[in-house]
Amino acid sequence: MRPFDDIDRLAKTPALDRIAAPLRDTVHKVLKRQDVKDALHGVWMGHPLHPVLAQLTVGSFASAGMLDVLPRTRRPATALIAIGMVSAVPTAAAGWADYADGHEEQQRVGVVHAAANGVMLAGYAASLLARARGRSFKGALWGWAALAVGTVGASLGGHMAYHQAMGANHAEGYPHIGPGDWTDVGAADELEEGEPTRRIVGDVGVLVVRRGRTFHALADRCAHASAPLHEGSIVDGDGRGECVVCPWHGSVFRLDTGSVVHGPATAPQPTFRTRVRDGRLELAVTGYPGVPAS
């Protein structure tokens, strides 16, 4: 049996919802400021922030574990553990922000991931306390035990990211499978003014919004979690042009460029070129904001 089979059983355990759901609601209550949420999601980076911070935290702990094996290196190991403990604060904050906007199966694995990391941090706290009392070997033992638990937690995090696609760009395939040639999607006059509409271009769904003689076209699958954007709402983007709001988690994208205005999405929506010929609307995939059409 493969290890991820056991993790998949966690994801399909509804009993975990009794813990996962209240935690999700609590995070939403605490993270009320949109700018703070955007920063923690990593909107400013263009990809999730949590994995980047986790590299520093886990890397510090793993390096400390290796130094504890070598002679006369327990003092730098202690410093690395302290760095890991400090960096764990923003790492956890970013992780909780992403967790709150995940789907149920991701959150079930997420609470176990968080529990393992909590045990790990408790172990490292005990390690630092032992070292402060001059019991360096006992501190090293606590550190190795904490690292073992942390490895389990990191494996769960990797499963969430790679197996459950949490934080992945769910619209990445559009520039590669969307047709680059102009494709007829129907009469231009059929589109209602300002109403989000779904059209099929080749093998992909496209969100189309008409504004007079101007047509905006974006990938219909939200980059955050594949929600159908044509079921969302059109809003003013605070001076940045009209935007579409994802119907599932509230990500906001500009209609003209596809760029992210607010998370939890961090990747932009691929765009489509538009033109009207003989009263027919035609679309062709462009790619991402700032990337010229081929």
Rank of each mutant, 00 (worst) to 15 (best):
residue 179 P to M: 11
residue 140 A to S: 14
residue 212 G to T: 01
residue 144 W to C: 04
residue 40 L to T: 07
residue 268 P to S: 02
residue 35 D to S: 15
residue 114 A to M: 06
residue 290 G to P: 02
residue 54 A to P: 12
residue 174 Y to R: 00
residue 41 H to I: 11
residue 241 G to W: 04
residue 108 R to E: 03
residue 175 P to M: 01
residue 72 R to C: 10
residue 280 R to V: 06
residue 198 R to L: 12
residue 292 P to M: 09
residue 9 R to H: 11
residue 113 H to A: 02
residue 96 W to G: 04
residue 270 P to I: 00
residue 281 L to Q: 04
residue 140 A to Y: 12
residue 56 L to M: 12
residue 261 V to T: 08
residue 152 V to F: 09
residue 161 A to E: 11
residue 255 L to I: 04
residue 91 T to R: 10
residue 130 A to T: 10
residue 186 G to C: 09
residue 29 K to H: 15
residue 253 F to Q: 00
residue 279 G to L: 05
residue 243 C to F: 02
residue 46 G to I: 05
residue 140 A to M: 11
residue 173 G to W: 15
residue 243 C to G: 08
residue 84 G to I: 01
residue 153 G to R: 06
residue 269 Q to E: 06
residue 111 V to Y: 00
residue 23 L to Y: 10
residue 169 N to D: 14
residue 35 D to T: 15
residue 61 F to W: 09
residue 119 V to Y: 11
residue 44 W to N: 11
residue 243 C to R: 07
residue 116 A to N: 09
residue 53 L to D: 08
residue 56 L to A: 14
residue 97 A to D: 08
residue 6 D to N: 15
residue 83 I to L: 15
residue 75 R to V: 09
residue 239 G to I: 09
residue 94 A to H: 03
residue 113 H to Q: 01
residue 214 T to F: 06
residue 66 M to I: 14
residue 146 A to T: 10
residue 25 D to M: 13
residue 242 E to Q: 15
residue 19 I to W: 08
residue 271 T to I: 08
residue 284 A to T: 08
residue 219 A to T: 06
residue 136 S to W: 15
residue 16 L to S: 00
residue 66 M to K: 09
residue 273 R to P: 13
residue 95 G to N: 05
